[in-house]
């Protein structure tokens, strides 16, 4: 790990945002020989308010849905210059990845470009004011899954299994990470950086503004996400899946739900909480 900083403070992220922590440590692991592509979203906006920048590595943002394609262009270009060992890392939100950018990402995975694609998953379109994405979990309030007399649940659809979708592309490496489990996170980033081809990492990204909890509680809430089994930690190397963290026994999902305002409407809705618990248990019963 590098002592130098490649993502520096002074940016405009909300207090308690987990995304700068994720980015800072990914870059400390990757080092200076790294190109970054950033999709439109919170990170891009809070880290590059012209004429300032938090980035001390070459960084580019072009649009919302095309980071994988932009990264492909960089991959082609630097290969022609003989830069064979530089890293190309994409940071893109869940919206930029699971929704609008899925086609470009799928295209890149099929081409197999040498890119580490990191989706920071704050589980909604946060930059535009907390609208639901396909990564928003079942039961979450967002400004486009509003609670009212006709909707007591919030988002009624389940989270899109983006990591499975990427694994189905037969890429050499896919993993989930949570910075609240730092050693696991660090090992996976290192491993991913050492592999050629398209690699995909789904990084849980606590967001006090959108999840509605106190900014001082981000890491605690993120810990609960994994300890309840809602956000499992695993990696898939050439198709072989391995769970990398096991909590035994798992904490009930209600403990995660009750600390976040986005689930406030569910506090006394035991049927929905039971359903969420059942879904989590059913996933784990396979592993």
């Amino acid at each position: 790990m590098n002592d130098n900083e490649y993502f520096v403070s002074g940016h405009k992220a909300c207090a308690g945002c987990s995304v700068p922590i994720l980015v800072r440590w990914v870059l400390k692991i990757a080092g200076p020989d790294t190109f970054v592509v950033n999709a439109t979203g919170c990170l891009e906006v809070f880290s590059t308010p012209y004429p300032y920048t938090s980035w001390k590595v070459p960084w580019i943002h072009t649009a919302f849905e095309n980071s994988a394609a932009t990264a492909t262009g960089i991959d082609a270009s630097i290969k022609r210059k003989g830069l064979l060992n530089a890293h190309i890392i994409v940071f893109a939100g869940d919206g930029a990845t699971s929704d609008i950018g899925l086609q470009a990402l799928s295209g890149m995975a099929e081409r197999g470009n040498d890119v580490l694609y990191i989706m920071y998953d704050n589980e909604a379109y946060m930059n535009t004011g907390i609208q639901r994405s396909s990564a928003t979990p079942y039961g979450a309030w967002t400004t486009t899954s509003e609670i009212g007399t006709e909707n007591l649940i919030g988002k009624k659809e389940k989270k899109k299994p983006i990591t499975d979708i990427m694994v189905a592309h037969n890429i050499p490496y896919a993993a989930t990470v949570n910075i609240a489990f730092f050693n696991d996170f660090k090992d996976k980033i290192k491993k991913a950086l050492g592999i050629k081809g398209t690699r995909f990492i789904n990084a849980l990204a606590g967001c006090p503004t959108g999840w509605k909890h106190d900014p001082s509680k981000t890491v605690e809430v993120m810990k609960l996400a994994t300890r309840t089994g809602i956000f499992p930690l695993y990696e898939v190397v050439n198709g072989q899946m391995r769970i990398t963290y096991r909590q035994d026994p798992r904490i009930p999902v209600g403990d995660y739900i009750k600390v976040q305002g986005r689930f406030k409407h569910l506090q006394n809705n035991h049927a929905v909480i039971d359903e969420i618990q059942k879904n989590v248990d059913s996933w784990w019963s396979k592993y």
């Binding site: 190109f35 592509v37 070459p58 580019i60 072009t62 649009a63 095309n66 394609a69 932009t70 990264a71 492909t72 262009g73 960089i74 991959d75 082609a76 270009s77 630097i78 470009a104």
Partner: peptide
């Protein structure tokens, strides 16, 4: 988008 990424590098 690939063109933009390649040209920018």
């Amino acid at each position: 988008s690939v063109a933009i990424g390649a040209s920018a590098s």
